Amino acid sequence: MNQNLADELVTMVTKDQRLLQQLFDSGELPSESYHPRMQSLHEHNASRLKEIIGGHGWPGISLVGEEAAKAAWLVAQHSVSDHEFMAECVGLLEDAVAREDVAGWQLAFLQDRVRTLSGKPQHYGTQFDVDENGWPTPFPIEDSTTVNERRALLGLNSLEERLEQMTEQERKRRANIE
């Protein structure tokens, strides 16, 4: 295992999550536009992940361990300024899932994010919007009748279970506000 690489990936995500929390705490997020500080950090992290991939391939569990492999996925997930790179990462994750070198849910989330950002229906139902009343609702899903079969293949619970979890989180959030 490459511990230095693992530490670097985890540090990248720690900084990402710290900045995200700071922006929420200061009231700067949520926002209608991409916050410039968040965008800058995401672009910096994506650039570094490209270098890592160029030198080592996808940083999966065998290379960096489970926590850092998840960190690499999150950097790719947050690379929204570079859709082409995100799409490349989907292909790399497909190969890594086939080798059992990353968790399948990582592929589901990234592939759905790439598709929804491109205006296409998602495959796994991992990406949610909110309805007119502020309740979670999944973005459109391609072939929704078999979505739970696809979700199960990658280790996800059913769409109905996930929707209930997200609805409960929103209920709790609303209860804390009142």
Rank of each mutant, 00 (worst) to 15 (best):
Arg48Glu: 14
Pro59Asn: 05
Ala6Gln: 06
Leu159Pro: 01
Ser144Phe: 02
Val64Phe: 07
Ala108Cys: 08
Val130Asp: 08
Thr11Tyr: 07
Ser47Pro: 00
Gln22Tyr: 03
Gln127Glu: 09
Arg171Cys: 00
Ser81Trp: 02
Lys50Ser: 06
Gln21Cys: 00
Gly104Tyr: 09
Gln17Val: 12
Lys70Arg: 14
Arg171Tyr: 03
His42Gln: 14
Asn148Tyr: 02
His83Thr: 05
Asp112Pro: 12
Glu51Thr: 13
Cys89His: 05
Cys89Thr: 14
Arg171Phe: 00
Val13Pro: 08
Ser79Lys: 10
Gln39Val: 02
Gly54Leu: 00
Ile61Trp: 02
Leu156Phe: 05
Thr126Gln: 07
Lys120Pro: 00
Gly55Gln: 12
His123Pro: 00
Gly125Glu: 07
Glu67Leu: 04
Gly27Arg: 06
Asp131Ile: 01
Trp73Ala: 13
Ala96Pro: 07
Leu5Phe: 09
Gly104Ser: 04
Leu49Asn: 07
Arg171Pro: 00
Ala71Phe: 01
Arg150Ile: 04
Glu51Gln: 15
His35Ile: 11
Gln111Tyr: 05
Gly155Phe: 03
Lys15Trp: 10
Asp7Gly: 07
Leu163Lys: 11
Ser47Cys: 12
Lys120Cys: 09
His42Ser: 13
Asn2Asp: 15
Ala71Tyr: 02
Gln169Asn: 07
Pro121Trp: 11
Arg99Gly: 00
Glu100His: 15
Leu154Met: 05
Ala76His: 13
Leu20Arg: 15
Leu49Met: 11
Asp143Arg: 12
His56Trp: 10
Glu132Met: 05
Asn148Arg: 03
Glu178Phe: 04
Met1Asn: 08
Phe85Ser: 08
Asp82Tyr: 10
Leu110Lys: 12
Gly54Ala: 12
Val97Phe: 05
Gly27Phe: 05
Gly119Met: 03
Thr167Cys: 01
Ala103Pro: 02
Ile53Gln: 03
